[in-house]
Design a protein around this nucleic acid. Structure first.
Lengths: 151, 151
DNA sequence: CACAATTCCTATCGAATCGATGTAAATTAT
DNA sequence: ATAATTTACATCGATTCGATAGGAATTGTG
């Protein structure tokens, strides 16, 4: 299981925006340079984030991006929904694929497993907010990893 | 997030093998017909399951497949490993991509999130064994879904 | 007004992955 | 020998993914 580059880039961008608050909006160009990410691709992700309402954009000369919500209100679940799409392994019953349980009596038990994993993932993703992540990041910078005392 | 067809097919095949125990081995052809799955593709999955040691195969005339382990010993984690590959979103530190934390100080905090999700998924997958799933399946068949009394 | 910097929309490309099919060889009970 | 099977490898079409490109629309500044 791997997360897409979209997810990581979106997350890095959001974390950067959170860490430079109250300033004038930050342009996609600057963002891509600061994070060493491909410019066009990043902006394409930023528009997705905007459509989802996580980010606001200011057009024109001194335009750029800023957070649209408070950092406590943005969770990794939101970012996941934007970049990875639905969190639906499959839904039993009448979906676009018809009745899966009808195909095989074992399909139903698989679907119940899917439900479980979906809930678990959802809860975990929702428990991570931008704010928490940024705090954790600051702690890492402030207190470097403990070193083993050499004699 | 979606699971691959490989995962589902493997699971369906294993559940079928578990439900027809102690018999002569079941051929890939029969398996594919009973489950209405593409023959070649299924057998390709079965060889993967064999390489992983979840299934044994008997060649020749009355050959086929049977479980290599007890149903309590086969978990969805094993199936996942076979069909979906590694459960590593990424590892911080010295991986094939070099030091990810060096690229950006926020990369480290993302990696710690990855660790969390990896552990959670692993535990969940390991908690589902073939045996449990088959029991759940039997319960579903025995007790049909409750119907709303009409008048 | 003209210009420059920016967001935004859409199209496309190459590589990789995925589901699936095909061919052919090795194995084994009858 | 023969029929049925596992096994291995090659390929194919479609989709997705990461990334690039061109060109609009928007907006502050000179």
């Amino acid at each position: 299981m791997k997360f897409s580059a979209r997810f990581e880039y979106a997350l890095l961008a959001l974390l950067y925006l959170k860490c430079e608050p109250d300033e004038s909006p930050i342009s996609g160009r600057v963002l891509s340079e600061k994070l060493s990410l491909p410019y066009r691709f990043l902006e394409q992700i930023l528009t997705d984030l905007k459509k989802a309402g996580l980010v606001r954009s200011v057009r024109g000369y001194h335009g750029g991006y800023r957070l649209a919500l408070e950092p406590e209100e943005i969770s990794l679940y939101d970012v996941f929904r934007v970049t990875e799409g639905k969190l639906e392994p499959y839904n039993c019953g009448q979906g676009e694929n018809g009745d899966r349980c009808g195909q095989s009596y074992n399909m139903c038990v698989i679907s119940s497993f899917y439900d479980d994993i979906k809930d678990t993932m959802t809860n975990l993703l929702k428990s991570y907010t931008l704010d928490k992540l940024c705090q954790a990041s600051r702690n890492m910078v402030k207190s470097p990893p403990p070193r083993v005392a050499n004699i």
